[in-house]
Design a protein around this nucleic acid. Sequence first.
RNA 1: GGAGAGAUGGCCGAGUUGGUCGAAGGCGCUCGACUCGAAAUCGAGUAGGCUGUGAUGAGCGGUCUCUAGGGUUCGAAUCCCUAUCUCUCCGCCA
Length: 421
Amino acid sequence: MLDFKFVRGNPEIVQDALSRRGSQVSLDDFLQLEEQRRDKLFVVEQMKSRRNIVSEEIGRLKKSGKEAKDMVLEMRDLSKQIKERDEEIRSLEEQLQDILLGIPNIPHETVPLGSGESDNPIVRMWGSPRNFNFEPKPHWDIGEALDVIDFERGGKVTGARFSFYKGLGSRLERSVLNFMLDLHTTEHGYVEIFPPFMVSRDSMVGTGQLPKFAYDMFKIEGMEYYLIPTAEVPVTNLYRNEILDGEKLPISHCAYSACFRAEAGAAGRDTRGLIRQHQFNKVELVKFCRPEQSYAELEKLTGNAERVLHLLGLPYRVVVLCTGDLGFSSAKTYDIEVWLPSYQGYKEISSCSNFENYQARRAGIRFRNEKGKTELVHTLNGSGLAVGRTVAAILENYQEADGTVTIPKVLQPYMGTDRIS
RNA sequence: GGAGAGAUGGCCGAGUUGGUCGAAGGCGCUCGACUCGAAAUCGAGUAGGCUGUGAUGAGCGGUCUCUAGGGUUCGAAUCCCUAUCUCUCCGCCA
């Protein structure tokens, strides 16, 4: 959420940012309602001031045994008026809030202009796709052939876009996520969190999933609880409505969680394999930092995620999302895309974003600066990485002509073997 | 699931016969004094949001906030209702 005062004071900047994103939203309503709100607020506060003064006077009179009938009657009437005006103001504030919640973050100045995915510039590439001297199979075929992933029974037991891992497949999933957590906690300085997989509505609003993206969420029936679409939600909300010690920043957390997504808008896309499931595992990286640190931290965080792919020896590239493809709450995002032979292309495996203070304002996450003033933190997060997609990438990139899969060196201690056969 | 207790500032903790209570006291923190320096001691300061006026600074003014939302009242941290959370006991359970 953007700042009331900022939007009010800089409508042209906000309007310009909106149009760079390709949005048609107009700020006229907002500005007009905001002016109304302030006018009414001014009047009602004067009334309240009078009520406070007179009420104090009544107290004094009563104490000294005098009557104050007239004043009480006058105040009774005044209070009624105040109540009505408060109600009007509250309604205005609600409308303003609704508008504000619908306004996306302002893209950082380094974000390239573009209208969609195809305009995302490639920032760097690492590794090169392997030349197979045989016809490589997609991971869903490998998984079934080696009897380590069972998509069909996933469909039977739960439904479409669910699957079972089995045997060394389960172990591979587990190895990959443990490897990621170990790497980030021991070498990259992240403190591990194991969060709840359901959160309250307030938390969903805090990180910006709600109210806009309710359609992509699983909600628990009869309760205001939602299954988390990413660990970003519980972990960022850890410090909701708190004032952090400025000395402790930046705070870096990593967290494993299962993630649940309805994928409502993705019918027909990535229907086969592990790429787009309703439930998947992910290791998430989350940072809270001072405003002036956040872009340096974004580079670090992205690098931390890339390191996983280096160590696994998986070819990838990094793209920076252009204004037209940038997520709603993000000011700047790098996507890391891993090479998948079955797609004959690069597929997103991590998305690293700086939200600046957009989430922090909504969630009330602040810190105390040198002057003792409170200031909103900047929040960042990125996948470090999506586990299922990593497993898919390993199966595909490390498959051999005989149908077996070689296990990358760094995973062998976790797997207890160097090969799935 | 049943019964009871509680939720106050960065933290701890007073205040519940409604009226200078945004809130005693302590801790922490900041500044100053003392000291060669530090500790100890002494003195002063120290909540947040909105809003008005300033330059989207400092300062000053108004208003709101004692878990949240309603209510009673001229006036609520204090009384009433609801929700949430925490703790204790019982039941159940991994």
